[in-house]
């Protein structure tokens, strides 16, 4: 099962790299989104895959790995999701602005510092 998800993450990562290497700006955004999602999954699964054991206590039994998933990767991923969202939102608006200003969506044409 872990191997299965490892392959999924690998495919998403490859998709992200391919997207970033495109010249069309919208594809680059897709690439960035896929890349950040695959990395989130990577960190998430580094804590192991546990079904139905959320890191929430019932207040009676002492917390342990047999009853609860590792909370630390989850906390890290939560932060990563939110930061990733901030980045993506900014990139979307920035690219839209670049397009409306320069009338091009080809990243190869964006090599001048002032235009």
């Amino acid at each position: 099962m872990e191997a299965f998800y490892a392959i999924l993450i690998g495919i998403l990562f490859a998709g992200g790299i391919y997207g970033i290497l495109r010249r069309s700006m919208v594809r680059v955004i897709v690439g960035i989104i896929l890349l950040s999602q695959s990395i989130n999954l990577l960190v998430f699964f580094s804590g192991g895959a546990n079904r139905g054991k959320p890191a929430i206590m019932d207040g009676e039994t002492a917390p342990s790995f047999s009853t609860m998933a590792d909370p630390l990767p989850q906390a890290l991923v939560l932060t990563a999701i939110v930061i990733g969202f901030g980045l993506i939102a900014f990139v979307i608006v920035l690219f839209q602005r670049v397009f409306s200003r320069l009338q091009t969506d080809d990243t190869q044409e964006l090599f001048k510092t002032d235009s």
Binding site: E2, A3, Y5, A6, I7, I9, G10, I11, L12, F13, A14, G15, I17, S38, L42, F45, S46, G47, G48, A55, A62, P63, S64, F65, M68, D70, P71, L72, P73
Partner: peptide, 28 residues
Amino acid sequence: LAGAIMTVLVLKSQWIQFAPSISEELME
């Protein structure tokens, strides 16, 4: 190629594990 490397990395990262002590302390 990058994706394949990433796959292997995920498998490895499960094997290596974060240091469990800090997670356990956080839970306690």
